[in-house]
Amino acid sequence: MSQSTPIIDKKKYRTVYLRKRKMLGARDFDKKNARLLYHFHKFFDGHTSSMVHSFLSIEKNKEVNTWPLIEWLKSKSKQIVVSRCSTTSNELTHYLFEDYKQLKESKYGIPEPQNGTIVLPKDLDVVLIPLIVFDRLGQRVGYGAGYYDRFLTECSKDCVKVGLSLAPPLDEIPFTEPHDIPMDYCITPLGVYSFNP
């Protein structure tokens, strides 16, 4: 297998499964998000984490709607951390989310904090991870820029990595790369998948 094969395969997976998600009707999309929120509550209820990093949904990609998740976590006195990405350095900077006025939509349609208290990755207890598709081993296919793989290497070994997906897992993604970091859990409308040994 040539070195370029995994990249080509990932592009195919990314294209096919992102297209499928974008085809979800509004009613089905809302229903799946409501079921995911139910399982999210069950997963986090009583969880001892205090600082949770969340991605902010890209509406045009029909990502999991993270706003109800964020509001619920805040009601449980969790500190929420969100990120801004630098297109020049390909790195994320993380900020404590305190007010919606902090946010401005980027040219890619991503709400991003413009200011606030900077938080270091090593201080996070949980990271909620965006994805396009995942498998029963905890591997995921993201958008291809590698932001989260780099970010997760900076988190502590005790940080819990939780994916969010509107679709069930594939049996196996037939390619992984050395820099791919598997998730610990993935929350879906059907329930919570655990990948801990």
Rank of each mutant, 00 (worst) to 15 (best):
R21H: 01
M51I: 14
I118G: 04
E59H: 09
Y143A: 12
L131R: 00
T48L: 14
Y100P: 07
F151S: 01
I58N: 01
I118F: 10
D180G: 08
V119T: 12
R84Q: 07
V127G: 12
S194M: 12
Y38T: 14
G146Q: 10
K101C: 11
K20I: 15
L37Q: 01
Y95W: 04
F175K: 11
S86P: 07
K157W: 13
V127F: 06
W72R: 11
P113Q: 15
L92D: 06
K122P: 08
F195G: 12
P197I: 14
S2Q: 13
D30N: 10
E91R: 10
E112R: 04
S89Q: 10
N61P: 08
N196R: 10
K20V: 12
D125E: 06
D9W: 05
E71M: 01
L103K: 07
I110R: 05
S77E: 15
R35N: 13
V133N: 02
W67E: 11
C159P: 12
S156M: 00
Q139E: 07
T87F: 14
V82L: 07
R140H: 09
R150L: 04
S57Q: 02
C186L: 14
P168T: 02
W72F: 06
C155K: 12
D9C: 11
G142M: 03
I181M: 11
L120S: 01
H39N: 13
M183N: 08
K104D: 01
S4R: 14
F175Q: 09
K74V: 01
